[in-house]
Amino acid sequence: MSTSVNTQLTLATFDHEANVLRATEEMRKRGFHIHDVYSPYAIHGIDEAMGLKPSRLTWVCFVCGLIGALGMLWFQHWVNAVAWPIDVGGKPWNSLPAEAPVGFEMLVLCAAFGTVFAFFVVSRMFPGKNVTPINKRVTDDQFVLALGEVDASYSIDEIEEILKKYNVLEVEETSLE
């Protein structure tokens, strides 16, 4: 998901999930730089095929959840035991079991929102963003493997030759702005 300016890209279009998966795997092993893979839906195993590093989003999720849970427990403790103690059924002011459900809910809420918004920020997605898809059909039924910084020793025909066994539909060059 890199967004460098004026990148020369070689686009290979496929019409089957398994083909783009195997093609990505082979091109990475041959030392090509995989710029991105465009697909109408998430493909199982594409992360490994592209050689992506494990996402750090899980850590964001964990930390947000922790902040949500601890923050809410602290807040309930402050309300129930410090700021405005109310006797509920003769229980102690600061009763952890009573605070657990709300703490749990805030854990889920903060973890979920935190993860989603962190994802939006990292991938620079916001309402009204104008995107020109690399190929309109990747939002429907086609898959595009985008190779960046192709070694000069490979011509576009050679790349097409390699990808032929994966039933590549077409290979073209484009520059991404």
């Binding site: 059924g89 003769g90 079991p97």
Partner: peptide, 12 residues
């Protein structure tokens, strides 16, 4: 486990 415990603890 907690749901069972908390309901019983709460109603006492």
């Amino acid at each position: 486990w907690f749901s069972q415990y908390m309901l019983i603890w709460y109603s006492n």
